[in-house]
């Protein structure tokens, strides 16, 4: 291991550092710092624009009215329909993602000897790399059109849930792996059946880590608009009925951005701001949950 590094260096012979090498070293450092700065500049610009443009048109109406009330005559309306839609669809997604995701993670870590483990792990990786838009199209083909359900909040939630599954599987698997094997053995040595060891000892031990993973997964899919186009479709009116067409916050931002109304574009910025703030708060909560052990 040590020799590989040494073989590659043919420059280390001279006693003092040559000016060329000194300059090269300094140049590399400058370029690295410059590159890092270039990466951070867009972040600051985006956050600045988001806060300036988003806050200037954010008001109570944003939370109490729906997109249907945005008019050319200057009534600003709001995104209530989209907020309600996002919450309801995320709730559906959460149920699907948590049950299947955590179940699969338990399968992968606690039943390692099962012959399906390699295939499930492979397919989990496949799902991880699947573009969100593909998932939306699949739910369109399967549920919206195939089963004849039509566009609905449930279909939207289903697509978000499918996207959540591999995220939750991976996060949960990581924390379950951290649970010491001796705890499982201690439980089994007390004469507890395996399922009780998993449910009453392994899962509670990993609880905060699992919660963190779930929150991050929700935060991640809450920003997905692409799959909603084909599943929930969008709806500028407020609805609480998940069998109806529904909008979600990111979808409403997308649609409003293209509307020929300044009020709508201003709403898009406010929507984007609220969305990003919600995601930031969620990740802070997740970090807090992770630290509280």
């Amino acid at each position: 291991m040590v020799t590989r590094a040494s073989q590659n260096i043919q420059v280390g012979i001279s006693k003092t550092l040559s000016p060329a090498r000194r300059a090269q070293n300094a140049l590399a450092m400058v370029l690295v710092a410059l590159g890092t700065l270039l990466v951070l500049v867009p972040l600051f610009l985006i956050l600045k624009d988001l806060f300036v443009k988003g806050f200037s048109s954010l008001n109570l109406q944003f939370f109490t009215q729906s997109q249907s009330e945005i008019t050319f005559l200057g009534s600003a309306g709001g995104f209530l329909n989209a907020i309600v839609g996002s919450v309801m669809m995320l709730a559906v997604a959460l149920v699907i993602g948590v049950i299947i995701g955590i179940g699969t993670a338990i399968f992968l870590t606690e039943y390692r000897e099962h012959r399906l483990v390699p295939s499930v792990r492979l397919m989990g990786d496949v799902l991880t790399g699947m573009p969100a838009i593909v998932v939306g199209l699949v739910i369109y083909g399967l549920v919206v059109r195939g089963l004849g359900f039509g566009y609905s909040g449930i279909a939207g939630g289903l697509s978000l849930g499918l996207i959540m599954i591999p995220v939750i599987v991976r996060a949960t698997e990581e924390v379950l792996k951290l649970v010491p094997q001796t705890l499982r053995e201690a439980g089994l040595a007390l004469g507890l059946p395996r399922w009780k060891v998993i449910m009453n000892i392994v899962l509670p031990t990993a609880r905060s880590g699992i919660i963190t993973g779930v929150i991050l997964a929700v935060a991640r899919v809450s920003g997905e608009a692409a799959p909603l186009i084909f599943t929930a479709f969008g709806n500028s009116f407020l609805t609480w009925d998940p069998t109806q067409k529904m909008s979600g916050l990111p979808l409403a931002v997308y649609r409003s951005a293209f509307e020929p109304s300044e009020a709508a574009v201003a709403r898009a910025w406010s929507g984007a701001l609220v969305l990003v703030l919600a995601i930031l708060v969620a990740s802070l909560v997740a970090r807090f949950a992770a630290r509280k052990r």
Binding site: P180, T182, E185, L188, L190, G191, L192, R194, I201
Partner: peptide
């Protein structure tokens, strides 16, 4: 499970839950 209920075990490293 029944076997382990009748035969207890203490491990090398202390492992309280």
């Amino acid at each position: 499970v029944d076997v382990r209920r009748r035969i207890g075990m203490v491990f090398q490293k202390p492992n309280p839950f």
